[in-house]
Design a protein around this nucleic acid. Structure first.
Lengths: 208, 208
DNA sequence: CTTCAGGAGTTACCTTGGTAACTACCTAGC
DNA sequence: GCTAGGTAGTTACCAAGGTAACTCCTGAAG
């Protein structure tokens, strides 16, 4: 991806937008909430640095991490033009994060002026929609075993190895696939007992 | 919504695109598959008449209906510009359906020429992304009781009445919230026994 | 060095809900 | 009128996994 959206703007354009107030930046500390569930979305936001997560929290406080976004990714792209422009989930900074905000009306002018910008934007929001679809496909209405297998198969392809580096804590993995940490722990242990995998803190290895 | 996308095109534009082959139509019979899971998406499609459903079918054949689309809605909008332009779920015609297909490259030309068309398109794909978000929010990782309550609360607001018309069969409702029909039946019976609701074939009434 | 917090593994207990096997309708076609 | 297919309701049985209450380990702060 690599900053396609910002790169499609010239320095002059950026400078002009910053000076006339249609672009402005904001900073968020670690663990602070960037957008609350239900908050209205009136700007397109581009992450300049840091990391945010989109998370659903249900009534009993259970957490599911739906997506993670880092530099050069956007927030709110799919909300700005929808009939109901409210953030449907909570967005929280995981690290100190700076975000550039672009007013909606200015955005439309940029689309007309700059085809590359529009193309990057469409590509980003399409990928975001795909992420949601994937969440449903991979983790919804499945047993934990199926969710784990789905995750491992995906990572095996990505990493092209049976020895899969888990670049997050087990707790985070449990939140990602939407189950309790203890249940994930139990199921991983079962799979190890059945000779399907081995694992430690950093790796899970699939045994053929 | 009302056909905003087609209405934003002039008759001349439509006629021109049809004659040069960048627009073309296709028909599908009831219960025929419009797109298979995994199929590549290379056109934007506009539903001219009929009804289609987006459904996820897991290995054991369980069905969950993710969304329903009717006339003037689009298919593939979020796929065309994404890095992985494969249909992530099966799309099936529920009624005899005709669909207009627009080649991707032509689409981009239309965006440049016609701002209203771009605006309609952005609005449609944003709404689609919102639908996916809602599915996750309302029905994922919940008990059947919570899913039912969520559905009833939503419909209560929509219909502005405690007596909620269910404009689908119980079987379809079960598919919508992603549970077995018998389990839905059991849970509704429990809720009736606890004095929370009454129901018959067409209505569910919430008792305050 | 000590303390404390957070990640991780384990397990008994129990709720949720999927499965399967019924029954009872209802409607369309013969 | 009779039969076949589709929708609904019911329930015994059982597997999956959430909950809670532990323990152990590690790393950072004091």
């Amino acid at each position: 991806m690599q900053s396609t959206l910002m790169h499609s703007l010239s320095r002059d354009e950026i400078a002009r937008c910053l000076s006339d107030g249609s672009f402005f930046a904001a900073s968020y500390g670690k663990n602070s909430v960037v957008h609350f569930d239900g908050e209205i979305c009136s700007n397109l936001e581009i992450i300049l640095s840091g990391k945010v997560v989109v998370q659903r929290i249900d009534e009993s406080g259970n957490l599911m991490v739906i997506a993670e976004f880092i530099s050069d990714d956007i927030l709110g792209g799919n909300l700005l033009f929808s009939k109901n422009p409210h953030y449907p989930m909570t967005i929280t900074a995981m690290l100190p994060t700076t975000i550039l905000k672009i007013k909606k009306d200015r955005l439309f002018a940029l689309f007309s002026d700059n085809q590359a910008f529009l193309k990057s934007f469409l590509s980003l929001i399409s990928d975001h929609a795909t992420i949601l679809g994937d969440r449903i496909k991979h983790y919804v209405n499945r047993t934990i075993r199926e969710s784990i297998t789905s995750f491992l198969e995906y990572e095996r392809k990505q990493q092209n190895s049976n020895r899969i580096k888990i670049s997050m804590s087990k707790k985070a993995l449990a939140e990602k696939i939407g189950v309790q940490r203890t249940s994930l722990s139990r199921e991983l242990a079962k799979m190890r007992n059945q000779g399907l995998i081995t694992f430690d803190a950093d790796f899970i290895e699939i045994i053929e």
